[in-house]
Design a binder for these strands. Structure first.
Lengths: 254, 254
DNA sequence: CGCGGAATTGAAAATACTCAAAATTAGTGG
DNA sequence: CCACTAATTTTGAGTATTTTCAATTCCGCG
């Protein structure tokens, strides 16, 4: 009886009922189970909840939702955005496969930001209370979890540097180079990729307007540093973009 | 014998050789031991290293320093600043008593930012490796540690919102209101306090120039919202400042 | 084919910056 | 304790970058 249910689930449309398995997941080298041995991975597998599909523009969680789970992205892309009482919104990050969502919520019992899918995506639900139990038994897991939280702190500090100190052109170069290296780390092309987010989202994230992003794309294109076709990007001069991002070279208007 | 050593230490000049004691520390309600019972506090006390004094303008740690300890501020103020390869610097936060320094370093084996004392200060050294051992035995401690890391993430997201979306005047109001509430939480006046950092530091933190900060202070003073004398500030219209910070009211030039 | 959202482009305006000079404050040594 | 020097802060004027507002254009989708 129960095996039949399981069979149905495997072969049917309702993939979201499937239990996730870290061991088989292509992201396990980047994700929470990084560095765990097979035995510990299976213990982690046992606590991991169902997979959950999130359609494009749908929210994984919203600000104020009660906090139960962290989420590891299996595939797809998300944006997280923070809002203040007067309604101003700031996109605080774009997340891709292997990255963890929800760590901001641990301090309270509810989420402090919205997480919205930029395309049809899938996540693993990680019940935080059960993860905490595991921490006591798998020190490696705890250590890696701390690394991931700490990395998030460092990442945000880099964004603060970007927003506080850089001109539009440098911000945009940093953005492109960052995407490029993250795709490279996942085995994708570092020079050809798709922007999963709108120009408006990019602008909001970088503290610029959509018009500025549009102008920057046009200028970079005119300089021959990249090609753009809708959301498809090809970096033609990645070294130049890296130099711009690092602040070692500057844009000269023509 | 050992009690005499203790006596000498207490009465002598070399306070930095003293072992810290969370139980007696006025900050223990805000700091790492928050919520622990007496028994667990004493276990925490046992792993806490020496106290360390840091003179004004001296560094507690520098970017690239190997990571061994977290630091809890006993008294005094610090700034943390992040630098990119091309030398641009961003102050990512100002920290005061009861706050934890060094959490950004957990992801690697070295610090990712500088921590500089804004005045003569004292911290408790918390050897992170030993803290990790304790986590396995005191779940409450682990939980609170996670809260503190998560709070840091949320705090940084608020700064990103500030830097990405707010005008100079609102940024500065947010800055003042934030200091005000943190002093209030520590039992100090929420309206009268000293700015421990230079105008330049404030400007860097807020993504503005020193001239802008100076002009903002003059404008706020002229509006009758505050008084300033050197670094001494009195908030005269805290409600107005809160409204500016929240974005529910805007500045009208006169 | 036409509608609507998204993106691009241009021109004018605003905000904050840069540069420069003056004023104030802090630090140092006599 | 005072005087001198260096550092920080304030203020002004002109400038630059990015925004705002407006008008098209592009593209996906029914």
């Amino acid at each position: 009886m129960s095996s039949q249910v399981s069979y149905v689930a495997h072969s049917a449309l309702n993939v979201s009922a499937l239990k996730a398995s870290c061991a088989n997941c292509s992201m396990h080298q980047l994700c929470l189970p990084m560095g765990l041995d097979d035995n510990d991975i299976s213990r982690l597998d046992q606590i991991i909840g169902r997979r959950r599909r999130v359609a494009r523009d749908e929210s994984l969680y919203r600000m104020g939702d009660s906090f139960q789970n962290l989420y590891a992205i299996r595939f797809g892309h998300f944006k997280t955005s923070h809002m203040n009482p007067s309604g101003e919104q700031q996109i605080t990050g774009f997340q891709m496969a292997g990255e963890l969502l929800g760590m901001d919520a641990i301090s309270g019992d509810h989420h402090h930001c919205d997480a919205i899918a930029l395309e049809d995506s899938e996540v693993c639900e990680i019940p935080f209370a059960r993860l905490e139990e595991l921490f006591g038994h798998i020190p490696t897991l705890l250590r890696h979890f701390h690394r991931m939280m700490s990395q998030e702190i460092t990442r945000e500090q880099s964004v603060m540097l970007l927003l506080g100190n850089m001109r539009a052109e440098q911000r945009f170069a940093v953005f492109l180079v960052n995407l490029s290296s993250r795709y490279a780390a996942r085995g994708y092309s570092s020079t050809n990729f798709q922007l999963r987010m709108s120009r408006e989202d990019i602008g909001n994230y970088l503290g610029l307007t959509i018009e500025s992003i549009s102008r920057l794309l046009s200028r970079f294109k005119k300089q021959g540093w990249l090609k753009v076709d809708k959301r498809e990007v090809e970096l033609i001069a990645p070294a130049k973009l890296k130099a711009l991002a690092a602040g070692t070279e500057h844009y000269e208007p023509i």
